[in-house]
Design a protein around this nucleic acid. Structure first.
Lengths: 236, 236
DNA sequence: CCAAAAGTGTTAATATTACACCCATGA
DNA sequence: TCATGGGTGTAATATTAACACTTTTGG
């Protein structure tokens, strides 16, 4: 999807991509070329494209992943969203001074994604010179309302985590219970009691134990689990 | 906001307005002139208008109310949303055959509102010849995905009701606990035990008892309460 | 005084929290 | 055999559900 080409004017999507690494919750950010701001991965919506498809496509371009947990969380439409500088930059880079709709205010539909950090091939888009992970607690200066978007996405994620066990999506195909617990602790921002966590997770009966065990440890190897369903619990 | 005049193309808002009357949960629907479909109150977003403001404005036009509980719940953007007939109707009624953006697919931001049924002056818009309440369990045939919108709004409302006590907004300024309980029972679709409900609601300490009591009853009059905060708990 | 409204008390069932403790196992 | 992973048991506490019963009060 090229900018301005056959897509819905004044509508964009922005994606908060969550990853987990080194005991930290991270988000994927782009550094907009020759600007001091960072930005969320985003894009536009084709005339013949579902909103969800557009988000999926953008994330495929930024991460290389086709299957990922993706959920719409809010639509941002404040009048002052424009911050002209950015729009001008966009128009400039695309040499589309004629595309006047790029100068206008945008309504942005926010999605959040949960991905396996280790599988992501972070790839900058045409406007950016880097695409990297940042600790959610140490975010750089973000453009427009992207900081607010991340906050809202995180709030939503915390609430959702109590409804359904979606945290698996942040881990590789197979993982140990201890790793899963660390994910929960990081997202919820509090320590959990190991034995109770184990009981609760296993009682959900959504995990199955895999044969191969963790290797390399000096002592007993932990069991390795994977999510029972063959496909990711997308829109389940 | 006139159609096509200085507003964001291909973006609309639709509002699910909930009201409570005669022990039933109701939604406000418009009957589109000379069509067999009913529709949710909706409208477009001005270039200089917040999304929230647009929803507020639309609801003010349809209900006469300026202060109401309003919450965004989802944005609908499926590729097949267009259903050409409706767009054509819109264009025709507005005699805007030149406004080609009206023929295109729309992204619609969904809001739900909780209002005091008795205060609403239901007013049809330019495209409709009626604006009325319908029992949520006996909805007429709705255009496009509006039925799905109502369902999603209701799902969201049920979840939100467990988080914060927003049900007051469906009642008049003052009300009895029994009335409030009926609202909860209707929304949640199950009976509640009176004494426990009373305890729980009063323990939240968000209600204050008013002097004047219910009149007309043959026996003891129930106490009348109102929400403690002076203004509605909008975005609290 | 009657009947509806409001509120208190109490019990059982269930869920949550926090630990102590035991079994399994691989180098 | 020992340090770590994995799991069971259980007591203390909190929450919820259900219902009996008392008090209030307008006519």
């Amino acid at each position: 999807m090229k900018f301005g080409e056959n897509c819905i004017p004044q509508v964009s999507i922005d994606c908060v991509v969550f990853g987990f690494h080194a005991h930290q919750l991270k988000v994927l950010l782009l550094r907009v070329r020759s600007m001091e701001y960072y930005a969320l991965p985003g894009g536009f919506v084709g005339q013949e494209e579902d909103l969800d498809e557009a988000a999926q496509r953008v994330l495929q371009e930024r991460t290389g992943l086709t299957e990922l947990y993706l959920e719409q969380f809010y639509t941002f439409g404040q009048r002052n969203r424009g911050e002209i500088e950015m729009q001008q930059k966009l128009a400039e880079v695309n040499r589309l001074s004629s595309a006047e709709w790029l100068q206008k205010r945008f309504i942005s539909v926010g999605y959040y994604a949960l991905v396996d950090f280790s599988l992501v091939k972070a790839t900058p888009d045409a406007l950016s010179d880097s695409c990297d992970w940042y600790d959610i607690n140490q975010l750089p200066l973000l453009m427009m309302d992207h900081h607010q978007m991340i906050q809202k996405a995180l709030d939503t994620l915390r609430i959702m985590l109590e409804y359904k066990p979606i945290a698996f999506n942040l881990l590789p195909e197979s993982f140990t219970i201890a790793e899963l617990q660390r994910v929960y602790e990081t997202i919820l921002g509090k320590e959990l009691i190991r034995t109770n966590f184990q009981r609760k997770i296993l009682s959900l009966e959504i995990l199955e134990r895999i044969e191969k065990k963790y290797t390399g440890g000096a002592h007993k190897a932990p069991y390795v689990y994977r999510f029972k369903s063959t496909k990711k619990p997308h829109e389940s």
